[in-house]
């Protein structure tokens, strides 16, 4: 689906362009498309991520945020 602009009424009653749905048709296909951990490319990336994003267990500076 390409750009799919619709006219919508704004707060002032004017019709303005608003981008609608741009979804790919159908259901997800392809193996491993929900995979994310591969975005961490090497050991340094992984360890950094563990110490920050997974700080609840592996953080060096406490748990919060």
């Amino acid at each position: 689906m390409s750009d799919n602009f619709e006219k919508k009424e704004n707060y002032a009653g004017e019709h303005v362009d608003v981008l609608g749905a741009t979804y790919e048709e159908g259901k997800p296909t392809g193996k491993g498309i929900g995979r994310w951990a591969h975005k961490l490319e090497d050991k340094d990336d992984i360890l950094y991520y563990l110490r920050t994003a997974e700080r609840y267990w592996y953080g060096q500076e406490g748990e919060k945020s």
Binding site: A37, K43, L50, W57, Y58
Partner: peptide
């Protein structure tokens, strides 16, 4: 297969 989990 999962190096990240191994480090955890």
């Amino acid at each position: 297969k999962d190096e990240k989990k191994l480090y955890q």
